[in-house]
Amino acid sequence: MAHSQSGKGLAVVTGASTGIGYELAKCAAEDGYDLIIAADEPRVNQAAAHLREIGTSVDAVEADLSTPEGVDRLVERINATGRSVDLLMANAGCGLGKGFLDQDFPKARKVVDTNVTGTIRLIHAVGNRMRSRGEGRILLTGSIAGFMPGSYQAVYNATKAFINSFSFALREELKDSGVTVSCLMPGATETEFFKRAGLMDTSIGQAKKDDAGEVARIGYDAMMDGEGDVVSGWKNKLQAAVANVTPASILAHQHSKMAEPGSGNK
């Protein structure tokens, strides 16, 4: 594969078959970056075909990033290019609705393995090379869900609390290294997340959501500007500010009204 189409550099985006991940990849392609995109479904190949129309080189990797093998496959593909990663957008994530004890545990574990374990494994591999080189940009997709205990999405919200926290800590560790770390914290966004998580019968599943393209653009620009964190959308900024001064028990109760199964019918 020809990799010299753009002089700009290489961007890696996970969870890039649809939604925010696809839109982040599109931002990078329009900016002239060649791409390696990854997702755990065949649709990543269709996404790559669409992105190639922009005019950069796009390599698609179908890999389950909740597994060590999946992350290793992506890292091997990156290494095979012989190129340095300039932008790493660690966006892969999944959710799960219902009360924790009513969830199928392997599915709950997959949320942790995708959102947390796979994400930090990939960042460890790519981030070390960025630090050695003294340059690179990392964007993690956190969530305003990380600010509040997620009744009926308990595992998901907890993973996003982890990502939000981890990104700030890593940013501080790398502050003099030439590598920047940014965290995009969207609210509910119009993607396939809610359908996949079994949340379509909930209030939040049925509510109007933010546009994935706008959310991605806000996150991409924040990463390119080296900003530490960005909450997309004024309503989400307000929600995040309120969450910071509200007791966790009240936040958990409020969240249950949005995410409890059947709440969309009330």
Rank of each mutant, 00 (worst) to 15 (best):
P186N: 07
D211W: 10
C183G: 08
V179E: 08
S232N: 06
V215L: 07
F193D: 00
E192T: 15
Y220F: 15
M185C: 15
R196H: 11
C183T: 11
L199E: 11
L199C: 11
D210T: 05
G205P: 12
A197C: 13
G205H: 11
F193K: 08
K195N: 14
F194A: 13
V231N: 02
L184H: 04
G178V: 08
I204W: 09
T180W: 00
T180F: 06
C183Y: 07
D229R: 13
E192R: 13
K208Q: 05
L199Y: 08
S232G: 06
V230P: 01
D229I: 09
V181M: 04
M185P: 04
V179A: 09
G228V: 03
V179P: 01
G187V: 03
D229A: 15
S203V: 08
R217L: 12
M223V: 05
A197I: 04
M223L: 15
V230E: 02
D201L: 03
D210E: 15
T189D: 05
L184V: 06
G213I: 02
A216G: 06
D201M: 03
D225R: 15
I218V: 14
M185W: 03
V231E: 01
Q206F: 05
E190G: 04
I218R: 08
S182M: 13
G198T: 03
R217N: 03
A207Y: 01
Q206A: 10
M223Y: 06
G219P: 00
C183L: 03
K195A: 12
M200N: 13
V230K: 14
K209S: 06
